[in-house]
Design a protein around this nucleic acid. Structure first.
Lengths: 210, 210
DNA sequence: TAATTTTCTGGCCGTGCGGTCAGAAAATGA
DNA sequence: TCATTTTCTGACCGCACGGCCAGAAAATTA
């Protein structure tokens, strides 16, 4: 799939083009993480990247496309690294490892996660509506629901509303990071362990095992 | 405590003054709830209120004071109405009634809650920092922790980290509303009941009762 | 080297914001 | 009624933003 020196009808992006886009995305993430979305003007991002403002307009159609590129980069990385670790686990182990894995990711990529949080809550389209909404969590919810259905079918979990559980667990993960950002002295992984205990207690079938 | 025609050294705000402030706060809440924080310019709020823009500047020192007045009005109302209903309940009943009570409040005051959510996540001070942060949840967390300490002392709850539980439960409540706003066709009170079951399962002492 | 394409610069523009103000209008009081 | 205070109006200001672009600079190709 990699673009060689082939002729695929489309001119393949030059190395400089690709490198510049990556550099600008990185500068955007740094700027948003450090100063918040509101202060991350194109001028500020360009300053961080060490280029002039026009370069951003040259490589991206506008601020919206740049911010979307930041979000995309983050989620691709997360799912590539966390999902494989969950293959083949028993239901309650799955619940625990999912929480610990996401926490580990957030700790490793603190700035990127912070920036994406800012972007997702602030980026608006030209008509004034939020670019991202809770509706964009749908895939995450469905993944969690799949996990609970599996736990039910194995008899490891009690009966409960899977959607409510999914919404709650996702919110618990988000708030864990927000709390950690506000209180950096706390132990994120200890928080994650406690959260895993909490969720397992909430879903486990009192009569079941595993 | 009500201001009669007394002379308290300070000129008491005229009836017109008080009424205008209430009217403008109401218009601000309506505008933010309907169009989002970003679109709620002073001009838009003034339009909603049916007055000219200068009136807002006349009655409030600036947009920040106006937004703070909206938030204050909301939280005062909530705590006045929910807290009294919780007196004297047993620990696990307390957990349940707290969740149901807050859900009921949010349902009754949907627009106000939506507006406050917008304000809290978007309002920034002149130096660019968020006016409100998760640190402003501290009192809520302490109230929840007090509840869990009570539950432990009564033997009704298992051992767990009270801060993590408080952060998680508060996030679960917030996300319940956000989900309901995005999916108005769902049953908020049913969600709240499920959430109460979930939290009770998470905190209850497997060996205890009540 | 010379011609051509790609990439970059930095100033400029239109827009919409929050806030200000002089003066009009309304309310109040003598 | 007339003077005084309170309240309101709507135009105006300075500012920062995203986007634009003519021309410079650098890279590539002939």
């Amino acid at each position: 799939m990699r673009s060689e020196n082939e002729s695929d009808g489309q001119k393949s992006p030059s190395f400089i083009e690709q490198a510049r886009r990556r550099q600008i995305v990185a500068a955007a993430i740094d700027t948003v993480a450090a100063q918040g979305f509101g202060a991350a003007s194109l001028a500020a991002i360009a300053r961080t990247a060490g280029v002039s403002k026009g370069v951003i307009s040259y490589h991206f159609s506008g601020k919206e496309e740049l911010m979307e590129a930041c979000v995309e980069k983050f989620y691709l990385g997360i799912s590539e690294r966390v999902v494989p670790k969950l293959e083949g686990l028993a239901p309650l182990d799955l619940v625990r490892e999912h929480i610990l894995g996401v926490a580990q990711e957030g700790m490793t990529n603190r700035d990127e996660m912070l920036a994406v949080t800012e972007i997702v809550t602030h980026l608006r389209t030209k008509d004034g509506a939020l670019r991202y909404s809770i509706a964009d969590n749908e895939l995450l919810y469905q993944g969690l629901e799949h996990m609970y259905a599996y736990g039910r079918s194995e008899g490891a979990m009690r009966e409960f509303d899977h959607r409510v559980m999914a919404v709650t667990v996702q919110a618990a993960l988000d708030s864990m990071f927000v709390y950690w950002i506000a209180h950096p002295e706390t132990d994120l992984m200890a928080h994650a362990e406690q959260l895993a205990d909490l969720v397992i207690a909430a879903v486990r079938n009192p009569g079941g095992s595993t």
